[in-house]
Design a protein around this nucleic acid. Structure first.
Lengths: 220, 220, 220, 220
DNA sequence: CATGAATGAGATTTCATTCAT
DNA sequence: CATGAATGAAATCTCATTCAT
C-alpha cells in the first residue's frame, strides 16, 4: 500500500517526476520528500505564518526550496494549494477514522477514538491546525468541501451515535447529526484555543474532558 | 436606552460628523442611520458576499452610498472595518448577556438564555453571521480579540457553569472554561451549518437540542 | 459639434473628468490634452517604438505622464489601447472621407481625394502609420474591425468606382470592391515603404503615381 | 532538383540530425519530413492559429511531436522560427519566380505569371498565408527582411515592368519600383481578404481581375 | 540527439489609500 | 465634511530557455 495514502494529486502523474523513476531511486533520494509534497508542506507553514491571503506564492516557493514557477507545475494556482491541504488532511483523517472505528465495538469508545484521532492529527502540526481552522474557514472553501470530505469524516461520528442509540446506551431523542456537529464544533474550538494559547501540552491530552462532557450529554 | 449601545467608535469623536451637528439636524436626517453606521452595515453585507479579502473598499462605499474617500473619514483602514464589526457585534452580545443572566437565577436557565441570545443575534442577520464565523476566523483577528471581547462574552457562560457547580447541580470535575468553550464551539458550528444549509427556519429554533445535550453533559 | 469627432470613448463618461467641468475650464486647461487623449497618443508613440507586444503598459503611462494605474481608469486593458487607436484613426478617416467625396462630383477626383486623404492622415504621424500598418495587422484585430470600420472607409472608394462605371468613364467589367481593395493595398504598401525608407518627403507626395496607375487601370 | 530548395538552415549543419545519419536511415524514416521541417511546419500552423506572440514554443513542440527542448536544437529561439518561415517561403517564391519569368518573353505575361505564382503559393496553405501577411508584419521583421529577400522577389516584378517600358508597351512615366510595390500591395490585400472571408475558391482564381487592372494601369 | 522538469525574470492588473478640490 | 480621480506598490502567473539525465 502506498505509504502516502492521503496524498491528493491534482495534476496528472506526468508531472510527478518521481513516478517516472524506479522506486529504488526515489527512495534513494533520501530524506528530502518529493517536490509535490515539499511544496504542500511549505504551503502549510507559510499559510499558517502569514494567512492564506497575505502569503505570497513566492514565499511558499522559497520555503519549499524551488523556483516560483515550479509551484505551478504541481498546483494549478495558489487556491489549489489551500484546497490540497484540506484534501491532504481530510483524506488522512478519513482513513484513520475507518481504522479506529473498526478497532472497537463500543460506540462510546468509537467516539473517544474519533475525537482523539482528530486532536492528535491537529496536535502533531500546529501549522496545519492553523490553516485548517483559520484559513479554510472561508465561505468559498467551506461550501466547496464541507458537503463532501468533511461530511465523510463526520459520518463516522454520526454512525457511532446511531449505534449507541440502537444499542440503547444513548438517548433516542438526540439527533445524531446535530450531536456530531456539536462534538466537532467543540473539538474545533478546543483546537483554536490550543493554537492561541501556545499551549505546550499535547493537544490530545485535552480530549478527556471534552469526550466526557459529550458522552454524558448523549447517554441516558 | 442608548440607541446604538454596542457601537464601537474607533476614531476620535471629531471625525464623527453627526457629533458636530446640532441635534436637531441629526434628527432631521430622518430614519436613515448616520454614515458611520451605514458604512459599517454596508461592510457586513459586502464582506459576507465576497469575503473580507476579496471585497473592495469601493464596494463598501458604493453599498453605503458614499464616496470611496468617505470610508476613510470614519474608519482608519479596511481592516478596521472588520474589527469594528466584531466589536459592534460583541458589544451587543455582552450587553444582552448581562441582561439575560440577571433575569433568572437558575444556572441551567442562564445557559439556555445565553445560547439562545447568541443564536438569535446571529440568526437575525445571515450576513453578520457569515462575517462573524468566516471572515473573523483569521489568526490576526482572533489573536487580537479572543483575549478580550469574546472572552468577556464567554465569561458569562463560565460563570453560569461555576454557579451550577457551586449549587450542586453540575458535576464538579468539569472545567468551567473548557465546558464554556465546548458550548461555544457547538453553537458556532451550528451557526455555520445554518449559513451553509440556507436553512429557512429561525436559527434560534435549533437551540433546544444543543442546550439539552450540553446540560445533560454537565449535570450530575 | 464635438471638436474631437473621431475620439472613441470606451469607458463611461463618468470616467472622463473633463466632462464634469464647465467647458471654459476644460479649454482653460491649455495645451495639455486631457488624460484620455494623452494616454492614447502616448500609446501610439510607444507601440510604434516597441511594437504592441513588447511595449509595457508602464511605458505608456510614463510617456503619458500618469501613473500605471491611471491607464486603467481610461482603458479596460492593454488591448483596448490598441483598438482605440484603430477607432480613433478610422473615425477621423471616415469623417474626412465624407467631406472629401462630397466636395467634388467627378469620380476620378473623388478617388484621388480619398487616396490623398489616407496618405495625408498616415503621413502626418509616422508613429500612427507604424501602429496602423504593423501592429494592427493581427488576425484578432483585423477580424474584429475589418468587417466594420475599415469597410466603412473602403465603401467610399467602392462608391466612387461605381459612380465612375455608371457615368461611363470606368470599365464595367471591373468589380468595384476588388478594385477598392487593390487601391487600398497599394496605398498601404506605399505607407509601409515610406515608414521603412525613412523617407523625408511628405507621404502624400507619392499619391500621384499611384492614383495615376489606378485610374488608368479602371478607365476605359 | 533539390528536394528542399527553399529551406533555410539557420544552425550549423552539425545540428541537423539527418545529416549525421546515413542516407539509408533518413530514407527509412519514410515519408515523414525530418525534424527541422516538421518543427517549421508545426510553427506555421501554431503561429497561424494563435499569432506569434500568443503562441507558445511548447505548442509548436507538441504540434511537431517533439519535446520542448528539441525545438532549440534546430532553432536558436522562438523568433528564429518566424524568420525561418519567412525565408523558407521567400526562397521558394524566388526560385519559382525565376522559373516563371524565364518561361515567357512577354512582360505582361511575366507579370501575370508572377502574380499567379504568389497567389498560388499563399493559396495552397492558409496557415502560411496567415503567418506571412499578419505575423510577419512586425517592424522588426519587416526591417530585417524587406530589404533583402522580399526585394529579391519584387525585383522580378520591377524587371518585367522595365522590360515592358523598354519594349514600348508600358508607359514610360511610371516608376517601376512604385508600380511593383503597388501590385504587391494589391496582391497582399487580396490574400488578406481571402483569409478573412474564409473563401473556399482557390486564391489564384482571383488573379485575373487584379492583373487586368494592373496591366491596364501600366499600358499605354 | 532528445527529453521535459525546472527555472526565474517580467508584465499586467488590482485596489487600498491619499489629497486637491 | 465629502468627493472620486489619481496613485503606485505589489503579486500572481506565464513561458522562453536551459541543462541534467
Amino acid at each position: 500500500m502506498n505509504n502516502r495514502p492521503s496524498l491528493n494529486r491534482p495534476l496528472s502523474d506526468v508531472n510527478r517526476p518521481s513516478l517516472n523513476k524506479p522506486l529504488s531511486e526515489v527512495l534513494a533520494a533520501g530524506p528530502s520528500p518529493d517536490k509535490y509534497e515539499s511544496i504542500l508542506l511549505a504551503a502549510i507553514r507559510v499559510f499558517a505564518r502569514n494567512g492564506f491571503f497575505n502569503a505570497k506564492v513566492a514565499d511558499v516557493a522559497r520555503e519549499a526550496g524551488v523556483a516560483d514557477g515550479t509551484v505551478y507545475l504541481y498546483f494549478k494556482n495558489k487556491e489549489e494549494l489551500l484546497t490540497s491541504i484540506f484534501n491532504y488532511t481530510l483524506d488522512e483523517a478519513i482513513a484513520l477514522a475507518k481504522v479506529e472505528t473498526e478497532a472497537v465495538a463500543d460506540p462510546a469508545q468509537k467516539l473517544e477514538r474519533l475525537a482523539k484521532l482528530y486532536l492528535r492529527l491537529m496536535g502533531k502540526d500546529r501549522n496545519l491546525a492553523v490553516v485548517f481552522h483559520f484559513e479554510l474557514r472561508q465561505p468559498k472553501f467551506i461550501e466547496q468541501f464541507s458537503a463532501t470530505k468533511l461530511n465523510e469524516f463526520l459520518d463516522f461520528i454520526v454512525a457511532a451515535v446511531k449505534e449507541g442509540q440502537l444499542g440503547g446506551s444513548f438517548r433516542e431523542e438526540i439527533s445524531p447529526s446535530i450531536a456530531a456537529r456539536a462534538l466537532y464544533g467543540a473539538l474545533a474550538e478546543r483546537v483554536i484555543q490550543w493554537i492561541l494559547s501556545q499551549d505546550e501540552a499535547p493537544l490530545v491530552d485535552s480530549c478527556g474532558p471534552l469526550i466526557d462532557l459529550f458522552l454524558n450529554g448523549v447517554r441516558r
